[in-house]
Design a binder for these strands. Structure first.
Lengths: 221, 221
DNA sequence: TGCTGTGAAGTGCTTCACAGCG
DNA sequence: CGCTGTGAAGCACTTCACAGCA
């Protein structure tokens, strides 16, 4: 399927719910598993069950981006993956920079899936003089102050913050000043950035809180 | 404030939206920052701004759990934190087990905030014979097959999966069989568990997809 | 007076139900 | 005939607006 074909199947310019985007990521994940199992076609019902959502929800979500299904048949798995990755804008390379080369930062730099999924970490920054110059997974750790220079040079659009909590805001400021368009923040704190910069938070504690709450509720019964 | 006082301020038995629980975690995060800045009282409006939500939303969310505010004044920060952590059930120790001692797993075992926030990682499991017996951050890595024994012995209620994608389902099965009540899954795949087990997913790629989508949309304009 | 707590109104996402097409 | 795509209905969360209390 070509890019042109994909483009013409974008009839909607309506606002797309954030929840839909989140589910799209799940659909892609499940569809990739299906490919590895040799499944070629799937209808909305089993796909929905595998994703823990309603079948109408699946069809409606997909319909925001085009008509990908075949009536009476279902969706061709591989072509649907292609359509969805295109719709999300992840069918290309995204260059990212990581700030904060601690335990978590190193784990991310060594994580093979970033490259596999097109989110190349091409810059690693830290403000600790003992870490600067060190090579982690083939990448030289550079001083935070040289961020703008590197971001421009390498065409970096997304920043990943893996600093300790107290240095997250400063890392965010450096990334914003360097001109990134989005930030993935692993530090367990809110960061302040200008309106036009997108921030996504990865906070395991929020998820642990949700687990604790649900388990506690159950135990009360 | 005592536990008894907190209990009596739970007048609602209505269903609490999941979104509310997620925001509660944010409120606690921001309130903790306020404490460290020496702020003693805050009203819903500035708290809402700091959390990027509507002030009514804050008041309604808090009202699910009791009446914590003082009219004409606002909320006492420290006492509100106490009330909210109690409401979520995180004002106690939760014992957790980690499965998969790779890069990410080690980063988690070395992450000081787990203990700080009461989510003690007291068991570390792996199926790799070269890793079994190794000590990571003072914890001995134990064979996955001994999970039930250890979970019972240590009173573990929550499992954390940091295995590679393909071993996540097996890890989940071991955890379920061992009797945990909730699972935090870092592997980028859906896992199948019985109805009564809670699962939370931490998937950075989903967040990166959202960033990529938003940035792409902006660039189109 | 100032800010909370909350019924009522508003909004947007989800689910239903079925027309329409392969 | 089976399954998609979609208007309409349903439902849940969010925001408004103000009564009520410190």
């Amino acid at each position: 399927m070509t890019g042109t074909e994909l483009m013409k199947s974008l009839p909607k310019s309506k606002h797309i719910p954030r929840a839909t985007i989140q589910r799209l990521a799940i659909y892609i994940q499940v569809l990739e598993t299906l490919v590895s199992e040799g499944v070629e076609v799937i209808s909305s019902d089993p796909l929905a069950k595998a994703c823990d959502v309603n079948a109408s929800q699946v069809r409606k979500d997909l319909a925001y981006f085009g008509e990908f299904g075949v009536r009476g048949v279902g969706y061709y798995v591989k072509s649907l993956i292609a359509s969805l990755t295109h719709a999300l804008g992840i069918d290309r390379e995204w260059r990212t920079a990581l700030v904060g080369v601690g335990n978590l930062g190193k784990a991310m730099l060594n994580h093979p899936e970033f490259r596999m999924r097109g989110f190349n970490i091409v810059g690693a920054f830290d403000c600790d003089p003992f870490k600067i110059g060190e090579t982690v997974h083939g990448l030289e750790v550079v001083c935070t102050r040289r961020m703008k220079e590197k971001v421009d040079e390498l065409g970096i659009e997304i920043g990943i913050i893996t600093t300790p909590t107290e240095r997250a805001q400063r890392a965010a400021q450096y990334l914003v000043d360097a001109g990134v368009k989005g930030i993935l923040n692993f530090a367990p704190t809110r960061i302040k950035v200008p309106e036009h910069i997108y921030v996504e938070y990865v906070d395991f504690f929020h998820h642990l809180y949700a687990l604790a709450f649900n388990i506690t509720q159950d135990d009360l019964k």
